[in-house]
Amino acid sequence: MNLPSPTLLAQAILSGIFVGALYGLLGLGLSLSWGLLRQINLSHFALAFLGAYLSYQLATVGGVDPLVTLLVIAPLFFVLGAAIHGLLSRFAVTPLNSLLVTFGLTVIIESVIQWYWTADYRRLASRYADITFRAGPLFVPLPELMTFLLSVSLCVAVWATLRYTDLGKAIRAAAEDAPIAAAFGVNQRTLAALLSGVCAALAGAAGVCLALTYTLTPSQLYAWIGVVFAAVMIGGLGSALGPLFAGIVIGVSEAITMALTAPSWAPLVSFSLLIVVLLVRPGRA
């Protein structure tokens, strides 16, 4: 095996960090709804792709800056997320059943995307796409850098909110023991709807990042599920920073695998890491 050059290795690691940040952002909402609401929301991925297509539409047809589309998509998805939560709560859906119900929802959203935008490939041609910075021998593409910064900002903001604010403490208390939290005046139903809305808005934000960096096709949403689930489980359910760290570890591991060996081995990395984590820390997930 030939050793890769330092530049190749560094560039690969940089790619891994960027894609890992996207895993983290996609995993953030999923982790919160799974850990704090006990809902395994597969439709999170469909919402992220719907967000990506809406961003594409607003930017391509409406001429709106892709980042500005977030101002439309995030509130819209907040409402959508709260509505989905209302539906799941109305029928007292269990965590396992939520997986099945939201899978159905995923298929419906995918069909809607395909009906409106067709199965053709769509690429958001933004003014950011062609901008790349140089750092010595390394190249830093702006869309990936924006994704990284947005991902880190949102993860830290959610973490700080959950840790330091009364709202966050109430959400965590309700997740820990809803009846006791209610006895202390926590309105669990409202908080759950709020959190669900936030998770969907985070999916929308991840969607904007997807549109900025990837060519879109409806069925591609399934390609992200496995690796993001692994990031969420390694990072810890209900954790805000965990999926980001786990995502970056997975992304970098995949990238190094690609740089050193056959890239076809890369998909094994996320699940191998997951198995190792489950063996070493079985209570993690």
């Binding site: 050059s5 190749l8 891994g16 960027f18 390609a223 990238a255 690609m258 740089a259 998909p267």
Partner: peptide
């Protein structure tokens, strides 16, 4: 020579290897 799984999302390291 290298190969990747169909459905691969990340082509950064592959591009870097070709450049190298």
């Amino acid at each position: 020579f290298l190969d990747w799984e169909f459905g691969n999302r990340e082509f950064g390291p592959i591009a870097a290897r070709i450049k190298d």
